[in-house]
């Protein structure tokens, strides 16, 4: 179904893979920092859902993987996330590494003109929040239509299931 693998660089410059976060849940979202609507909305929703979990949110690592590595360097991602969505760690890499990660999560992207920036471009993309378990296996995903309460409920359920089977 989903491999859920990646080999990228986090926004502090560290080489990371999915194994780097073993033992904690991963909440993974693909996007790009120039995204005006979809990413900010989704990142805000995920942030609110994690806030609603309280201490339990500490069991989840929120990751933001760019689909636009040409513009989203580690420095750009760190600045963007620390200012706007500090719960998240940004991941980037070479175009090839990003394409491998996208394929692993079956992420759709299509680079095209940005109607609000004639000099720039936009990258419409799959707007799923993927949840991977502590062993790195794909558990579920949340649509961008999910509201914070619904997502928090889903996350809470998954954490509880994990605790019950541990």
């Amino acid at each position: 179904m989903l491999d859920g693998t990646f080999s990228l660089t986090d926004h502090d410059g560290n080489a990371v893979t999915q194994a780097s976060y073993r033992g904690r849940f991963m909440l993974i979202y693909f996007g790009f920092t120039h995204c005006r609507k979809v990413c900010p909305r989704s990142l805000a929703c995920m942030t609110a859902a994690l806030d609603a979990l309280g201490d339990a949110a500490g069991r989840i690592v929120p990751l933001y993987i760019t689909v636009d590595p040409e513009r989203d360097t580690p420095e750009v991602m760190k600045s963007f996330l620390e200012e706007n969505f500090p719960r998240f760690t940004g991941l980037t890499g070479s175009r090839e590494a990003i394409d491998r990660a996208k394929a692993s999560f079956r992420v759709f992207t299509r680079k095209g003109p940005d109607p609000e920036d004639a000099e720039g471009y936009a990258v419409p993309h799959t707007a799923f929040a993927y949840l991977l378990g502590p062993d790195g296996t794909y558990l579920t995903h949340f649509m961008d239509t999910a509201d914070p309460a619904k997502m928090a409920g889903g996350l809470r359920d998954m954490l509880a299931k994990s605790a019950a089977t541990a």
């Binding site: 079956r106 419409p124 799959t126």
Partner: peptide
Amino acid sequence: NDHLYWMMVEKGY
């Protein structure tokens, strides 16, 4: 069904 669903996702629907 899962296989077709994820292909559909990957194609942006």
